[in-house]
Design a protein around this nucleic acid. Structure first.
Lengths: 202, 202
DNA sequence: CCATAAATGAACTTTGTGTTGATTAATGAT
DNA sequence: ATCATTAATCAACACAAAGTTCATTTATGG
């Protein structure tokens, strides 16, 4: 397990192992992958793998943590007041655009991890991220516990999962729309009922 | 690989293997499970496993297929016209209630498979099921390709994932509402915009 | 140029896989 | 109740991959 990130050999090796894992996950899914597979795809000795990672789970966790770190950094720029101000405008919310740009930059990772060959625990992590960094900032609004059409927590589960679904579908389709366009869909679907979104009702 | 389903020994053995797998998946997730784990939890000889299943993937597939068969059977009773007739009523759609009852009966399976330790390919299967048996029956309504607020396919992805999310959350919470109650939430969230569902707007 | 340390290669133990063949035990048809 | 059938057990096997160790080669940076 190495620490020194200055040595270009280490950077190179770790990068190759990470790339190899993602490629293999696309092909076979995480389950079937062996350490042998990873190192031979990366063109490295099997022993070298263990110099940097404990096992394939460890490797995946490290990649994941890096991506989540990137997401958290973007989340810092989110202000719920911006969203309130933005209400009823028919332009995408800028923060959402930024998120989609990030997904696009790391499309390989997100598309594999959120897809059928991915890790369901990652989807959960991703949902928790949205819950903590986005949804929880609106908790102030729901003090009126009684007489709401739908319990707050179920509504959150609905919205978070819906948003995750859009990200998944967008990646699955090979990003057939710009981040700006998908973000606009987000904004509209949040403002309208599903029936209105479909254009079946003014 | 056995065929004769009449022999009670076979029924018993297969049932024990299935139960053991689900229990282990709850504990450790599919990935870490060995055939040894399954048979010793089931109190059977390791060799016996191979009399019935090729490997642990095979076992999981068979269980999955059984559950999907049950879902398809329920889906046969679905008529999109019923849903149209039901519009703007504030009662749950009966078909949805039936589905949730089924999820409840097989809560162990669905909660594991749709949860963080589950199989992401199953979530995809489940979404495809909803797409084919529910959503596709409304394709007739969207001939007006132009000027819709959101592309039809993205709206479908949004709705399907949202609904999956509710099922997941309901199971995760240990089914803290009756099938009737959750089904009513469904109906309301489909009729209202997210902002209305939250009670933030008339 | 050279001390340091990363990568390689080979050997080794351990764990799980999937199969086989002989033996024991349960089943259901007579 | 008997008995042929066949499921389940048990032990042994070859094989593949995991994870470790250590001597050797190669690349890095001072």
């Amino acid at each position: 397990m190495t620490e020194n990130v200055n040595d270009p050999r280490i950077v190179r090796t770790m990068h190759m192992l990470r790339e190899a894992l993602l490629e293999l996950m696309e092909e076979q899914g995480f389950e079937r992958i062996t350490v042998k597979d990873i190192t031979s795809k990366a063109g490295l000795n099997r022993g070298t793998f263990y110099l940097h990672y404990a096992d394939k789970f460890d490797l995946l966790e490290r990649i994941t943590e890096e991506m989540m770190q990137g997401l958290r950094q973007i989340a810092q720029t989110f202000d719920p007041l911006d969203l309130v101000m933005h209400e009823s405008q028919d332009t995408p919310f800028p923060f959402t655009v930024r998120l989609f740009e990030y997904f696009g930059e790391h499309a390989r990772f997100f598309s594999v991890m959120l897809g059928p060959k991915g890790d369901p625990a990652f989807s959960v992590k991703f949902k928790e991220f949205m819950q903590v960094h986005l949804m929880d900032k609106f908790n102030e609004f729901h003090h009126s516990e009684d007489r709401v059409p739908v319990p707050w927590d179920y509504l959150m589960a609905y919205l978070i999962s819906a948003h995750l679904g859009i990200v998944q579908y967008w990646l699955e389709r090979g990003r057939d729309h710009t981040p700006w366009d998908v973000a606009l869909m987000f904004t509209r679907m949040t403002q309208l009922s599903p029936i209105q979104s479909a254009g079946l009702k003014k």
